[in-house]
Design a protein around this nucleic acid. Structure first.
Lengths: 153, 153
DNA sequence: GCCGTTTAGTTGAGCGTTCAACCATCGCGG
DNA sequence: CCGCGATGGTTGAACGCTCAACTAAACGGC
């Protein structure tokens, strides 16, 4: 099948490389800050956030994985670590004996509450402060479109 | 210091979460495709690309790290693996005895050439096909602004 | 009520990244 | 030309992620 590759034109090249550089730099920076200030990677922070927003501060493993955009395996390993840190506790699910429920402990909530201001400040400094309100709006639309496109295709 | 945290307003929240979901999904997808089709993670692919674009297909380790947006340590480990795969070779630097030069081998170039069409197709499908030309332009400006902001601050 | 098929979740090995410690060399001030 | 800080690069341990294999329980059809 001699299908010709549709290579990226110079503008697309430039866009793609800028996007790569920016997103890598942004996530690396936030990850490093969070690791330094709160002793956890961003992925773990997000798990705690999702749990904290839920009534009872608890979620089935699968739902938590979905919410955090994580694979089951990843979440399983992560919760094991969070449990060892005393930030999350596992409970049996009353309605499904296969199920496990991850519960945010008080200590976990306190850790999250302590970490949040610094992290939010970082997001603001590194992302929102650099962009105009119009650009923020554009970024929202673009991201929502992409997220939608990636989950359905 | 009772400095009030400037929390994200609902629009910013939404933007930030959409951005996180989209960029995570995009990179995860491309990484998985590249791993499946070319047997290497995206970070390694990018190292090969940078080398391939250079006269003589070679670069000092530090320059390569810079170009690929990588730490020195990361690059060192990565090149070790790429060397084991036969895709890169290390040479002494004639002008600086501390220096090492990473050289893309013919085999490495061939592997890259074989992987490129599929990867480009992936970038197109998952990113550019989902966005309008206007949005692509917006994304470029936003990314360039962010990259600039992140490297100078 | 039984059997095959999903679904929930875990596990361990292998890999890539980070961080800090480290060695070697360079280049500059005195 | 000596000493010392800066630079280039590597190393090993700890950690997080991926993938595939696995167990256990729920579901669906007959």
């Amino acid at each position: 099948m001699a299908v010709m590759t549709r290579w990226l034109d110079p503008d697309e090249q430039r866009t793609w490389r800028a996007y790569l550089a920016a997103s890598r730099a942004l996530m690396d920076t936030l990850d490093r800050e969070l690791q330094r200030d709160a002793g956890m990677p961003h992925a773990y922070y997000e798990i705690l956030v999702r749990l904290s927003e839920t009534p009872g501060r608890q979620l089935r493993m699968s739902d938590l994985a979905q919410a955090a955009g994580s694979s089951r395996s990843r979440l399983s390993h992560a919760v094991a670590r969070l449990e060892a840190a005393g930030w999350v506790r596992r409970e049996e699910c009353p309605t499904d004996r296969r199920g496990q429920i991850a519960v945010l402990t008080d200590e976990g909530f306190a850790t999250l509450a302590a970490a949040a201001p610094g992290h939010v400040e970082g997001v603001r400094r590194h992302l929102f402060d650099a962009l105009s309100p119009t650009q923020v709006d554009q970024l929202r639309r673009i991201s929502e479109t992409l997220a939608e496109h990636l989950t359905t295709s």
